[in-house]
Amino acid sequence: MSEEQPAVLTERRDGVMVITINRPEVRNAVNAAVAEGIAGALDELDGDDDLAVGILTGAGGFFCAGMDLGAFVKGESPWFGDRGFAGIAQRGARKPLIAAIEGFAVAGGFEVALGCDLIVAAEGAKMGIPEVKRSLVAAGGALLHLPKRMPYHVVMELALTGDPLPAERFHEFGVVNRITGKGEALDAALELAVRIAKNGPLAVAASKQIVQQQYDWTSSDQWDAQGAIGGSVFASEDAKEGATAFKEKREPVWQGR
């Protein structure tokens, strides 16, 4: 890879932004440039009305090996602003984001994938959190996210042994949405992104927000909290357009208002 090439590449494909970690010579390990690049791409995704969905993937036939340990030892930080590790772990995108995994997503690389809303993985791809093998802690979100998404004892085995599991196993637990043939993860992610992009943008954004935030709501306030987010969607011009298009048997034309 030429030194002039950025650590993170972006490409637009009909309303979908493809974000590629572009450091294959170090297995797409996360350094400061990757964290800044992903954060900037997410800012662009959320700030552009012409973009509906993002896809995060890696160059070279694999997703990401996690934190760049060489850069870490030299004092370089893989955290960026309030977005945290890799520019995504603590604050991801407002719009839907899909991880497309080939080869492996381990350590912080798996945590980057967990910062996405959906995960598509090629058959045989390895995923796990091996930090304990280096006397480190999976502090990029895995220990916080996985107990909410997988059985307790399985998460404990991942966390304490550091051994990976194949993507097929994560698919059984519902962490991975789709298993594809090798080399086909990005294409499958693009197909999924197109299906999402056809829907009303206000409704998509509100639905994502409700699913993400409901863990913090009590049973007594959850309906009010949901109404505060979703109420304006029902009163929107897009909601009227959706109902009208359905009655007229045509595709809706969204305005985002």
Rank of each mutant, 00 (worst) to 15 (best):
L45S: 02
G47H: 09
D49I: 01
D50A: 14
D50I: 05
A52K: 10
A52I: 00
A52R: 15
V53N: 06
V53R: 03
V53M: 11
V53H: 01
I55L: 12
L56H: 01
T57A: 13
G58M: 09
A59Q: 11
A59N: 12
F62L: 09
F63I: 00
A65Y: 04
G66L: 12
D68Q: 02
G70D: 15
F72K: 12
V73H: 14
K74W: 02
S77T: 05
P78W: 09
P78F: 07
P78T: 13
P78N: 10
W79F: 11
W79G: 00
F80Y: 12
F80Q: 12
F80K: 04
G81Y: 03
D82A: 10
G84S: 03
A86F: 00
G87R: 06
A89G: 04
Q90F: 07
G92A: 14
A93W: 04
A93V: 03
A93K: 03
A93P: 09
K95V: 02
K95T: 00
P96E: 08
L97A: 07
L97C: 04
A99T: 09
E102L: 07
G103N: 05
G103E: 08
F104R: 08
F104P: 01
V106A: 09
V106I: 15
V106G: 05
A107F: 10
A107N: 11
G108L: 10
G109T: 06
F110G: 04
F110Y: 10
E111T: 06
V112L: 15
L114M: 15
G115F: 00
C116Q: 10
D117E: 13
D117M: 08
D117P: 05
D117N: 14
D117R: 09
D117G: 15
L118Q: 12
M127H: 01
M127L: 15
G128Y: 10
G128F: 02
I129D: 08
E131K: 00
V132T: 11
L136T: 04
V137R: 13
V137Y: 12
A139W: 05
A139S: 13
G140P: 00
G141D: 12
A142V: 08
A142D: 10
L143T: 10
L143V: 09
L144A: 13
L144Y: 02
L144T: 14
H145L: 15
L146R: 10
L146H: 03
L146N: 02
P147Y: 05
R149I: 11
Y152A: 13
Y152L: 14
Y152P: 00
H153C: 07
V154L: 15
M156K: 15
E157T: 14
E157Q: 15
E157P: 00
E157H: 14
A159Y: 12
L160Q: 14
G162T: 03
G162S: 10
D163F: 05
D163C: 11
L165P: 01
P166H: 06
